[in-house]
Amino acid sequence: MDMTRPEQIEIRWHGRGGQGAVTSAGMLAEAAYYAGFKGVSSAPAFGAERRGAPVTASTRLANATLRHFSQVENPDMVVVLEDSLLVTANAVNGLGAKGYVIVNSHLAPEELGLSNGFRIATADADSVAEEIELRVSGVIMVNTAMLGAVAKATGLITLEHIERVLNHTFSPKAARKNIEAARMTYECTRCAY
């Protein structure tokens, strides 16, 4: 699904401490750079992070070199690593009327109870990570998988761009597993628009 590329796209990631939202936000910036965006940035919402607490990260993608790095407050897209954060972190706060909401959830987009105006996509990244045993310290990891959902839902990046990022970030073995997770999640992403 191709999206006419605007001058700048602002993305907010929602996860919990330990889920790797900050890491995958940075990976999206890098993948988008490979996809031809000249200005990309990704910044964690700064604070004393702790496991399990809601965290956010801001990613900006632009056609020109970026001049500002403040936190995103009116995103064009939110990526949510756990569907409970839709409520507890009010993940769609400030999201534009036709904004993308991309959620790790076993539910269909229509079942999330969100405004119809949003472009909603869901992917059951938990099941993907379970299936291929993508775990860190026993905990399943869905952050890299959700890059596949972003690719499918927006067309801003492709699986090849994601692969390139993962290949140079991880050891060959870990990269293979993460690439597989992104690919499977890409395949199972459901878009309600």
Binding site: E30, V40, S41, S42, L66, F69
Partner: peptide
Amino acid sequence: GYILSHTVMP
């Protein structure tokens, strides 16, 4: 700090 030190960009 953070705004540049921990923010990725090209």
